[in-house]
Design a protein around this nucleic acid. Sequence first.
DNA 1: AGTTATATATACAGGTCTGTATAGTGTCAA
DNA 2: TTGACACTATACAGACCTGTATATATAACT
Lengths: 196, 196
Amino acid sequence: MKETTRGASTARQQILDTASTLFYHNGFRAVGIDTIVEQSGVAKMTLYRYFPSKDDLIVAYLERSNLSFWDWFKQAIAPAGDDSHRQLYALFEGVAALCASPQCLGCTFQHAAADFPSLDHPGHRLALDHKRQALERLREMAANAGAPDPVALAEQLLLLMDGAFVASRMFGKDSHARQVTQAAALLLDTQLPPLH
Amino acid sequence: MKETTRGASTARQQILDTASTLFYHNGFRAVGIDTIVEQSGVAKMTLYRYFPSKDDLIVAYLERSNLSFWDWFKQAIAPAGDDSHRQLYALFEGVAALCASPQCLGCTFQHAAADFPSLDHPGHRLALDHKRQALERLREMAANAGAPDPVALAEQLLLLMDGAFVASRMFGKDSHARQVTQAAALLLDTQLPPLH
DNA sequence: AGTTATATATACAGGTCTGTATAGTGTCAA
DNA sequence: TTGACACTATACAGACCTGTATATATAACT
């Protein structure tokens, strides 16, 4: 049998799209199910069919956000080809550009960790997973680029990246997040062998 | 007339202390007035006498948090004496130590900005004010230390500091926030004239 | 003793929240 | 035509939220 009819998947998509915007802009606790129902144009029972609880919806949103992040990540480093050193430069140019875009409101995983302090909550757990993935990916790139201590470099770079997202959330598109490129470049220049 | 009797000020203090812990741990929206009333041991009407609305209580909390931060700041740079260059080193050793302490749960102004996205909300406004003060203070120190571009250096350092607080909130006391000292030192070494 | 200010206890109004219950509509396929 | 399925519309339960109303107790100062 066809497992999804046309209407079924679009309703779910519509709910998730609406919830994403609302969660990202207003925070998880500030957005009620009723608001998502109204703005998505579906019936409440349809929402609860696809997402049995609000937490389930939050989890679906965060999982999709994680995938979106890695799509963005790949695209940001793509111009640098296969050279990890250049990829890291390109990445932090991408971060600055992202934070300068008007629709950027910081990192949703930061907000999830703050909104759900308990480590048991799936929101906090997914936020942690996301940051661990970021650390691992940065470590890998740093190692490929020849860093003597790739773990340390990756951790320092993630500090800058998260700092940039904080700045973006607080100050908007004209924040000091623009300095992330320069700061990352200095860390890279000091801890990587020179570009050949 | 004496404007405050003994009991009056301790009740207000008790309310503010309790609210501080709860807001910092659980977030602003997650904590209800009734919870603060219960845990502080005062009557609800007493709370509303000192703080006519929850927003007023939040404002009082954030203003006191700002003062606490600058107390901590002064104490963190005190061992470095009057030398701005050494003060900046000491500051970021202090940030790493703070983030490594078990009671650290990140920066409450980050949480305020995320919880209250509207720039009109006093919570967001106070968060912005706090970060602007931090930028200005760092710029001043960078200038005193002889930085050719003190604004840029201050902005880069604030990225690191906020990144460290994010790490602390997410990962707890054993986070990559420890790398903030090393990263800041590299930025300082590159952008300040050498220590005499 | 009497006045005033401070704090308590408790109940409640009116709103919002998550999640459920119920009944009905429209569509597609056998 | 019948039945299965996705979706809609609406009402509601039960909890929690902010803020107020009311009546009372306590303590200090005159």
